[in-house]
Structures are given as C-alpha cells and as structure tokens.
C-alpha cells in the first residue's frame, strides 16, 4: 500500500543543512498498522508528512497504492484524498460546525450531494461517539472530542491509508484513552495505518510493526513483541529505558 524508497528530506536552516529523513526505505502492506517511535527531532513526523506530500521531499520515492507521489503525471490532490491524516493539534476548521467539518471535503473534493455527505458524516460521528455534538462549533469541544472529530473528518473521504501524527500528544491525560480506543477500533477493522506516537501501550497492543527512528534513519524495524522485549539497536535500548 505504501512503498518508500531511499527517501531524503533536508531542511536548509541558517546553520548547516539537517537531514531530517535520511535515506529511509520501507513499506506498509494493506491492513498493516505501523507505529513509528523515536526521540523528538528524530524525523518521524517529517517522514510521516512526506507520505502525503505535505512535506516536499528532496530525493527518493513514495508510492501510494501504486501511484508515485513525485511522478510527473501525478495529481497530488488525487493521492491525498486516498490518504487520511490526523494532526497533533487537530486542526479542525473553527468557522465550521462539527458536521460541516466532516462534510466539507466530501462535497468539495468528492462532489457528494449534501444529503449523502450528511448521512456519511453522522454515521462516522456516531462511530467515534460524538454525534450529539454535530451542530456545535469545535471551540466548544474538549481536546479528545476534537481529535475524534478530526478522525471522522479524515475517514469521511474513504481513505485507503490513515496517517496519525502524534494524535494524543496535545491532549490532557484523561482524554488520551478515548482517542486511542477509536484508533484501535480502526485497526481491528483492517485500516492500513502509519502512526507516530509516544504511546508505548498502543504500540505494544495494536501495532503489527514498530519502527524506531533517530537522526532521520530507521534504526530498528520489528514486531512489537520483539522490539519491546529485546531491542537490538543500542539507541533503541536507551530510548526504551527512558520512556518505559
């Protein structure tokens, strides 16, 4: 589903250029849940953002469902509607109600009729457990509720892949669970997912594979059972000792 070959992303700062993603190759199969962990500044978020072209990469290839993102004939907007993304800071549209947040792209991008989009949105809002807030504005919702709306918004496009960029990092601790529950349910339903997170519990229980990144490189890529019990890379060992 996702194929990454020799991906390189360089940030040209004022000092010397930083290779945020340094020659990463990997793939995510259909229905697979890959959790990407690593210390802050390790390039894991940048890597994730390259997967739907939000970050323009400098070298290598990203292929989503057979379509090369950098291909000369590729319309990036066509690829993005197949790739849902959930952000750390939710990024709901504050001037739209919850329902409008979920229907807007369906109508604008997928050209669905209002009734069809509304029905789809209400079904998804019910699924994430927030249907009763459909006509509220996002500012009236708690962080956990906003993030669940953001997940529903992404799902409304019927994506083939979902990308999660630290979806629980901006939440108060008591709200982390409700968001992780929704993600876990998605994983059980067979959604292909790439998740950047600091939630080790989620990685252990839900992930099929754990990728450990540092200084722009994938240093370890293993099933959670193996990774959490016997990490091979020394930096992964140190990292796990610090977070667990």
């Amino acid at each position: 589903m996702i194929e990454v070959k020799n991906l390189v992303k360089v940030f040209e700062g004022r000092g010397k250029p930083v290779r945020a993603v340094d020659n990463v190759s990997t793939q995510v199969n259909k229905g697979e849940v890959v959790v990407i962990i690593g210390p802050s500044g390790s390039g894991k978020s940048t890597f994730l953002r390259c997967l739907n072209g939000l970050e323009a990469y400098d070298d290598g290839q990203v292929i989503i469902d057979g379509v090369d993102l950098g291909g000369s004939k590729t319309n990036i907007n066509m690829v993005r509607r197949e790739v849902g993304m959930v952000f750390q800071h939710f990024n709901l549209f504050p001037h739209k109600t919850v329902l409008e947040n979920v229907t807007l792209a369906q109508r604008v991008v997928r050209k669905r009729k209002a009734a069809e989009a509304d029905a789809k949105a209400m079904a998804l809002l019910t699924k994430v457990g927030i249907a009763e807030k459909a006509h509220e504005y996002p500012s009236r919702l708690s962080g956990g509720q906003q993030q669940r709306v953001a997940i529903a918004r992404a799902l409304a496009m019927d994506p083939k892949v979902m990308l999660f960029d630290e979806p629980t990092s901006a939440l108060d601790p008591e709200m982390v669970g409700e968001v992780l529950d929704v993600m876990q349910q998605l994983a059980r339903e067979g959604m292909t997912m790439a998740v950047v997170t600091h939630e080790m519990g989620f990685a252990r229980e839900v992930a099929h594979r754990v990728m450990f990144m540092d200084v722009g490189k994938v240093l370890e890529d293993a099933p959670p059972a193996a990774f959490f019990t016997a990490p091979k890379d020394p930096r992964a060992q140190t990292f796990l000792k610090q977070v667990l």
Binding site: L54, R80, G84, F87, N91, F93, A105
Partner: peptide
C-alpha cells in the same frame, strides 16, 4: 491563519484554490 488549517484542508485533497476559498 495557522498553517495547520491549510495543511488539514490540503491533506483532505482540496486544491490550493479550494483551501483559500473555504478555509
């Protein structure tokens, strides 16, 4: 307007014009 707003819109497949107009 925070950059996250247009990123969210673009990640849903909206074009830059649609993003400007609606978001």
């Amino acid at each position: 307007i925070a950059k996250g707003q247009s990123e969210a819109a673009r990640s849903l497949g909206m074009t830059s014009t649609e993003t400007m107009l609606h978001i």
